[in-house]
């Protein structure tokens, strides 16, 4: 027998789930509507929008480009974020709190300001907007998240692990590569998926730092502003499926890893 408060909370939770999923579900359904007009009611069904999307070179290019940018920026974020965490984790020095704050800064600056300050910055260091600029912008934004995730895992690692490796003849680099890095693996996997999602979905940095080649979110944004084609539903659905699948897989993989080696 559930108490009234329990019933109310449960109902509220499921109502919120509906609020979260309904718009996305409508979008998926709309992608199969056989009409040039986006809206209800739906009278006929088709798959032509999907066929159209898979033949549209602009969309395919944008998809590949976004994927490339995401992968490169994720790889860079992992290396730099781990480096920062390994530096800050054990180090005790005057001004550590300040350095820590600077490290977290990109994660808390409002997106549009972060993008615009980057736009000015790349100009000041002589870079043009384009692939390099987007990758740099995404990497700067991702590094704090990687560093924080790695730091929390490092904190859970017994000091004796590295000491044992050193005791057995490893210098600090070998100890790091053979003992610390495998220990960090679950958090690195989690961080890389998180960075992939952040980078693939990012709009504001790609918009302000990009060159002529649009990323997928920028392409969708442009389409939305220039009048909505039903193909957008199909593109968005593909993005939805890809990201949700990636996220779910990562969630399971990291949970399993953390379960077996803690």
């Amino acid at each position: 027998m559930m108490r009234p408060s329990q019933i109310a909370l449960t109902t509220f939770y499921w109502a919120f789930i509906v609020y979260l999923f309904l718009p996305l579900a409508l979008m998926v359904v709309m992608g199969f509507k056989d009409s040039n007009f986006i809206g209800f009611p739906i009278n006929a069904w088709t798959t032509r929008w999907y066929l159209q999307v898979f033949q549209d070179t602009a969309v395919l290019h944008a998809f590949g480009y976004t994927l490339l940018i995401s992968i490169v920026s994720t790889a860079l974020s992992l290396v730099i974020g781990t480096w920062c965490a390994v530096f800050l984790g054990p180090a005790r020095f005057w001004g550590r709190a300040l350095v820590f704050a600077v490290m977290c800064l990109p994660a808390v600056i409002p997106g549009v300001i972060s993008a615009i300050s980057m736009r000015i910055f790349i100009r000041a260091i002589g870079l043009e907007p384009g692939t390099g600029a987007i990758i740099l912008g995404l990497t700067i934004h991702n590094v704090p998240f990687v560093a924080l995730m790695v730091l929390s895992r490092l904190g859970a690692m017994p000091r004796s692990q590295v000491e044992a490796a050193r005791d057995l003849g490893a210098d600090s680099l070998v100890a790091f590569l053979r003992v610390t890095l495998p220990f960090l693996f679950p958090s690195l996997l989690g961080a890389s998926i998180f960075c992939m999602l952040l980078s693939f979905d990012d709009f504001v940095r790609a918009f302000f730092l990009g060159g002529y080649q649009p990323t997928l979110p920028v392409l969708i944004f442009a389409e939305l502003r220039s009048g909505m084609s039903p193909a957008i539903n199909a593109i968005s659905t593909v993005v939805l499926v890809v990201t949700a699948a990636l996220g779910l897989w990562a969630e399971r993989a990291t949970r399993r890893l953390k379960g077996t080696r803690s």
Binding site: P158, Q161, E163, A164, A165, R166, D167, P182, F183
Partner: peptide, 18 residues
């Protein structure tokens, strides 16, 4: 430590879990 001819058994054993 890596240059010393001594070895240690740690309190938590510190076996490498992987």
């Amino acid at each position: 430590p890596n240059r010393r001819d001594v070895n240690m058994v740690f309190q938590d054993y510190a076996l490498f879990p992987h």
